[in-house]
């Protein structure tokens, strides 16, 4: 056999091994027996707090819903990103169109592992990258609460994604790199309970880092600039820096932060806007202890300068 022929065979074998490795590495992983045992039976009353902390309605209720309509999780919100448009699905208790037929374990696998009942990877537009840090008991409580919500029929349109993002199996590799249930910010041994609670709420259910942290080229959050602010994933504009670094909220007191989350007013009485409006309304439903804990954590995260480029000083046409 001539050299090119041998090389070609070598390439095919290498590709085969690569493909096997790809298949192995991208295999959807499920929660382990320990986590499954930790789920428990769930408590709907406690689950309501997790539901609002998790902000499920921002994506899974009809856009601009208020009051009771917020609890109709029929889906339909479109998330326009650089990878294409994602549509949040129906997660109401409808057994055909929603998740009414799901077991607690299936729900936990979606929330903590980003894996569907049929074993497919979810796209991280569903922020399980943060939810993966949730406690199994909280996920079970959330499941119990969601069982009390109405069943609403209706299917949402499919996502419209560009190649190669439309290949779900590929998400497996991405997940190996970016899904981790470990806390982002290490805190000292024996830190106050309040700080630990704040960390849990922000890094886990609250998924604040999904918007407030800049992303690298493959779309993973850049943990070395945690909460430093970012160019908005959708539309133009920026998401502010909420660390105490340059350009951030170092001059806000803990009370200022808690008050913003409760009332929607900044310390100089500007009003909350953009996608933070829904978040603020949800966090306003938590207890003042929860909001104080979030504030304590934000004051404790390492300061970073803004995670987005400075705005040009003049906006007059430069070209």
């Amino acid at each position: 056999m001539n050299l090119p022929g041998k090389l070609a065979i070598a390439a095919v074998i290498a590709a085969g091994i690569g493909g096997l490795a790809f298949w192995y590495l991208t295999e959807p992983a499920r929660i382990d027996a320990e986590a499954e045992a930790a789920l428990g039976t769930g408590d709907a009353a406690r689950g309501e707090r997790i539901f609002w902390a998790g902000g499920c309605t921002s994506c899974h209720a009809r856009p601009k819903s208020e009051g009771e309509a917020l609890l109709q999780l029929v889906g339909g919100v479109q998330l326009e990103t650089a990878f294409g448009t994602f549509v949040a699905p129906n997660i109401s208790q409808d057994v055909n169109d929603g998740i009414g037929a799901w077991s607690r374990e299936e729900f936990a696998n979606a929330m903590l592992k980003g894996v569907s009942p049929s074993g497919r990877h979810y796209y991280p537009a569903f922020p399980y990258t943060s939810y993966a840090r949730m406690r199994p008991t909280d996920v079970a409580d959330l499941y119990a609460f969601m069982k009390t919500l109405p069943a609403v029929a209706g299917r949402t349109p499919d996502h419209t994604l560009d190649f190669p993002y439309n290949i779900r199996r590929g998400i497996g590799l991405w997940k190996l790199l970016y899904v981790d249930d470990a806390p982002v910010i290490a805190v000292d041994e024996g830190s106050p309970e309040q700080l630990l609670l704040g960390r849990y709420l922000v890094e886990g259910p609250g998924h604040c880092g999904e918007c407030h942290t800049p992303r690298n080229i493959s779309g993973g959050t850049d943990k070395s600039r945690w909460l430093a602010g970012a160019v908005a994933a959708e539309g133009d504009g920026v998401i502010p820096n909420i660390t105490s670094g340059e350009g951030g909220i170092g001059d806000w007191s803990e009370g200022d932060i808690a008050s913003y989350l409760e009332t929607g007013f900044t310390p100089d009485f500007d009003s909350v806007g953009g996608s933070m409006v829904e978040v603020q309304k949800n966090v306003a439903r938590l207890t003042s202890d929860d909001r104080a804990a979030i504030a304590a954590y934000l004051k404790a995260v390492p300061p970073h300068p803004n995670g987005y480029p400075a705005r040009p000083s003049t906006e007059t046409p430069s070209d």
């Binding site: 602010g229 539309g235 133009d236 502010p240 806007g273 953009g274 603020q280 400075a310």
Partner: peptide, 17 residues
């Protein structure tokens, strides 16, 4: 009043950094 501020800022205002 706060609701009317944030309802408008939600759609018609954008932070540009």
């Amino acid at each position: 009043i706060g609701q009317s501020c944030s309802s408008c800022h939600e759609t018609y205002r954008i932070k540009k950094g």
